[in-house]
Design a protein around this nucleic acid. Structure first.
Lengths: 213, 213, 213, 213
DNA sequence: GATGAATGAGTATTCATTCAT
DNA sequence: CATGAATGAATACTCATTCAT
């Protein structure tokens, strides 16, 4: 009979928000952001259309929050308190973490690459995160982006250092790029593979480390 | 001012169809299939909305024909009258052709990867071509697909043969996959790079050949 | 810390009701009845949406009560225990009271004229008060409305009597109307003027009295 | 069988646009801008909802165009090629024209005053026309508005000149204002009176001219 | 009393597609 | 062939109102 406490309200909100975002991510990832209707999300989340707008001001903001949540997860995962220097073992660990994240966030990466493929969408939702995750190629100017561009810098240095241990015709930039292409290529392949095919992850990550460590 | 022959009519029709498809492809690739309206395409093609439906029964079929046209181009490009055996030089030539096509059909590949990223769209438009272009990973069952899966078979054999010339721990499947990942990763990167950056194409294709030939 | 008496409860209720009505009136008047949301009012009144419905059964009734309250204020202001006869000084006093009320109830009059301008709204909320405040013109049939139509009758008589002191071509009805037009015209102008521009009130009321007394 | 000519299309468009605007004005004026739905307008205009958007980009723009059309009518009516000087006969003619317009554009004026009564609406739709039509009181700063503020200036001068022919305590500004109040007051009364009550128009305009000429 | 989560009917707007001319 | 007016189903979003706690 007594009214809910603010804490209870907070909990309900948090829980529902998470539920909606989870459902929405799944549908955005599978059916596509544009083809997924608010109606559809609401129905699958077991709530009314109106409630959606109690939690998110618009479909766009729902997408935005989903992206930010996943990006934040990545940040946490990679422990930003690194100095810039990457040892060989740290490089290996970094690569393994990338593959781990790919598995953990399959749906997000499906959504991510999907958005990446549309000019205006990419500008609206991803520009603030690109220059980092998307890799060096698409927007080399955004280097001021601190966290992941920091990682990129570390890897670049790693490849430069590696050159000294290698043959003379070794071009660190091309090698770095190829490393990124391989990871990217695996990424867009893996996000559509059978979810439980751990074997190919293992094989791929091991071979990539073997080559580029 | 004699009346046009049936042949001329046919030519005009073909020409206009091509024009529409060109304009549509450009917009589909840049703004996205769903965000591009028929109206927009018609206006940019300099024709009326109604006429569009004289040439294509629906937006979907327009997309379908665009895809088929590009796929056909690829078929022609790769000379299907090969036996299955790939020499080293033929492999190099094949890789170079892939990169060539990537440049020639930038817009198509932008569209292609965009569609690939949405489950129902991919099923509707690409399933008949996948297992081939998309690579072995996504739909390994479509092996009956004759032409490009033939190429895939050739390359698989190529990598298997290569194993015999290499170290003992060499796994031809992983190596083949990595090769595909690299090409794919470069592809989705390149389609958004500066159009005229030939340099990076050159460097990348050379290094890939160096590694995998 | 003794439990509150029923009287205290009643007072608290009354106080809160007044607060809500004050806030609502302000927003209705400024942003418009339709554009003002219950949410907005509740937030600005520092209460919850749900509580609103503890005090008012609907948005419409909230409006209704606001109107009635202001009308009641007017009733009180004009001392209904008049006989019908209006002396010149009483006429002057009446006019000054009208202008006074205009200042005191600016927000209400803004709301009032706003509602007046929409047919169905006027019928729903104002019809029971019209024929009086709105003036004789809009609904001459409502003459049974006792209080303010009584005032109107007094003024009509006043103008009729005045005719006898005036030139022969004097038409009391036209003169009365013109008097009402002037007051009305000033009203809808004044409710949007700078709140503290007393000067123009003074000048206008004096001149009107000068002319029509 | 032959296709429509551009002229025919132009005519259809013009006709339909006018139809829609006429219907919309009527409903905006009677039921209110906010309460009038696009659906309602479409149904009463005998067209589909979608077609509305073929002619007007939004409900707001529909309103905007309606206002502009009426304002333009006013401009035409008042022959802007006047010098600034107003003779007594010109003043009379001006007043009669005002009353004429009031009759001709009853619906528009109902809409106009309705919009005037809501702060944000007034700013959005009327600000560009105010300072003139709305009269001097609401936005005295907009004097740069050329056409109707020109008229206002002429009338102001007219009242100033008139002062010289009158008693010493005559204040031209107050008198001008009272004139405007009377017209305004009549206006908001007349727009809700019986449409065919010409008599009261006649009486009122004659008396106003009698007083203020 | 008091809260705000939850609902759902309603609103403006879009767009592929049809069709009379 | 060619046009663009016309349609209507679908979509994102709003908001008064209800209700469990």
């Amino acid at each position: 009979m007594s009214p809910r406490t603010p804490k209870q309200f907070q909990d309900i909100r948090e829980e529902k928000k998470t539920l909606i975002m989870d459902v929405a991510l799944e549908h955005f990832a599978n059916e596509g952001y544009f083809k997924t209707t608010i109606n559809h999300i609401a129905r699958h989340a077991g709530i009314s259309k109106g409630l959606m707008y109690n939690y998110f001001v618009s479909k766009e903001e729902l997408l935005s929050e989903i992206i930010n949540r996943s990006i934040a997860e990545i940040y946490v995962y990679f422990d930003p308190d690194k100095d810039g220097y990457l040892t060989e073992d740290e490089f290996e660990s970094f690569v393994r973490k990338c593959f781990m994240l790919l598995k953990k966030q399959r749906s997000f990466w499906r959504l991510f690459f999907q958005l990446l493929m549309q000019k205006d969408v990419r500008e609206q939702f991803l520009s603030c995160h690109l220059g980092s995750i998307d890799s060096i190629h698409t927007s080399p100017s955004d280097k001021e982006n601190t966290f992941l561009s920091g990682i990129l810098k570390s890897i670049t240095e790693y490849f430069t250092r590696k050159k000294e241990r290698m043959l003379s015709n070794y071009d660190p930039v091309t090698e770095l790029n190829l490393f990124i292409y391989a990871v990217k290529g695996f990424a867009i392949t893996a996000i559509y593979m059978d979810e439980n095919d751990d074997f190919i992850y293992e094989k791929t990550v091991n071979r990539i480390i073997e080559i580029y460590k």
